[in-house]
Computed example of a mutant assay.
Amino acid sequence: MTSREERSRRRRARRETVSGLRPEYAAELADGPQAFFEPLRHNCPWCGSGRIGGHLLTADLLQHKPGRFRVDRCHSCGHLFQNPRLNGRGLDFYYRDFYDGLGEQQLDGMFGGRTTSYRRRAESVRPHLGGVKRWLDVGTGHGHFCEVARAVLPEVEFDGLDRSEGVELAERRGRVARGFRGPFTELAPDLAGEYDAVSLFHYLEHSTEPLRELEAARTCLRPGGHIVVEVPDPGSRYARLLGRWWLPWLQPQHLHLMPVGNLRGALSDLGFTVVAEQHRSAHEPVDLVAAVWLALEGAAPRDDLPWLPPVGPLHRALRGAALLAGVPALVAAALLDQAVAPFAGRLGLCNAYRLVARRG
């Protein structure tokens, strides 16, 4: 089969999948997006202060599923959080077909292509993790980080944990020694004291209760073990400059965005000692190109998606033409991202930070 025939076959298969999913999504949306949210809260979930206010109002800029999402800021501690927050039904709805289903192949390819980033991450934390033999990667997805990190840390055995079926795929493909599927806070007691290192790479921001996730990590660690936490940095100047087009807002998936001082304090309260705070090595130079892409996606006609009305060939052709016209802007933004990256730390533009802390 030629590559052209294969692409045509995949397009037909996708259209059939979309058509099959459309009744399910119609039933889910029958009560409207308001059914996906908890009641509005009036205090900060991090410090309890009632001094909170609206910071950002946006939509689902990636999947274009219906709904509006608000991020509030606590004026006492600086914590940012989705308010009202998605309930269990809402989390299921907005995650569906993102990391699995319709989105599985695309996401697997995207994360699988980040070998350099994963290697840099492993090399950045290696000097602080002497003697590590067993490592649990929480929110491992398809296990790509573990696969790459083994080359940097060949003496370490990596296990993975995730809510999605991706962790089972990771175990089948040998990317992790053992794969655990389910909520971390529920599985942690069975893994108590088993690990020298626990990593939460871009995981806490997705959690409904991030402080409980940190407690679960402490449970899994042996005394003297290390936790590695990497999250988006809401203090990045890009967050202010790019507004709703800053990718790490990632609504509605990101429920919490924690200033670095807040996370350091929480780790200290749990008996951890922070041994490293890294900003430049946690930064991914994608802010500008991602902002341009999100803007193009917002302006272009929508793709054929099961939660939106059906589209025809003309609509798809118009979408292709609109995105093609934006290629020069995407290229320019990508080049500028790379040019700015060496100075991101000094300019306050790093879009993430990483903490390494030792359990007392």
Rank of each mutant, 00 (worst) to 15 (best):
R359G: 12
P248T: 06
D303F: 07
G130C: 01
R175K: 10
P234T: 07
A192M: 04
E5I: 14
A30Q: 07
H55V: 04
R12A: 15
D303W: 09
R22T: 04
G113W: 13
L335S: 12
A197M: 11
L255Y: 10
A188Q: 07
E123P: 01
G179I: 02
A333L: 03
L29F: 09
F111P: 00
L324H: 14
V71F: 00
R173G: 11
F343D: 11
T185S: 10
L61M: 04
D269L: 13
L255F: 14
A282P: 04
A27G: 08
S236C: 07
H315R: 10
A322L: 00
Y99V: 05
Q82S: 06
V152E: 00
N351S: 14
R354D: 13
E157N: 09
K65M: 01
A295E: 14
R73K: 13
G345D: 07
P183L: 04
A352L: 02
G78K: 05
Y238G: 13
H315V: 12
G141I: 05
E284C: 13
G348N: 09
D97A: 03
V289D: 15
H254Q: 12
R150W: 00
F145P: 07
C350T: 06
D31H: 12
L263C: 06
V228T: 13
G160C: 05
A35Y: 02
A216Y: 09
R280N: 10
L204N: 13
E155K: 00
L347K: 08
G179V: 02
P39M: 01
G48E: 03
H55G: 08
A197L: 13
Q251D: 07
L161Q: 05
F69A: 01
E284S: 15
D269W: 10
P234I: 03
V148L: 00
G271E: 06
L29C: 09
G139Q: 01
V71G: 00
R22F: 05
I227Q: 14
F343M: 12
G265N: 10
A334D: 08
H144C: 03
E16S: 11
P23M: 01
L187T: 10
Y203R: 14
R173I: 02
E157M: 11
H75G: 10
R120E: 09
H75M: 05
D108V: 13
L308V: 05
K133P: 01
G312T: 09
G261T: 07
R212D: 15
A216H: 10
L221R: 11
S49H: 02
D92E: 14
Y118A: 05
E186W: 08
M1S: 15
C146S: 09
V198L: 08
N351Q: 08
F36Y: 09
H226V: 14
E16I: 04
R218M: 08
V356W: 13
L129C: 09
G243A: 11
R346S: 14
R237W: 11
H79Q: 04
S236F: 06
G141Y: 11
Y94C: 03
E277S: 15
L255S: 14
T140S: 15
G139T: 02
L40D: 05
P310M: 08
Y353G: 06
L56R: 03
L247E: 15
R15I: 01
P39L: 00
A217E: 10
V229Y: 12
A216S: 12
G131C: 01
E28Y: 04
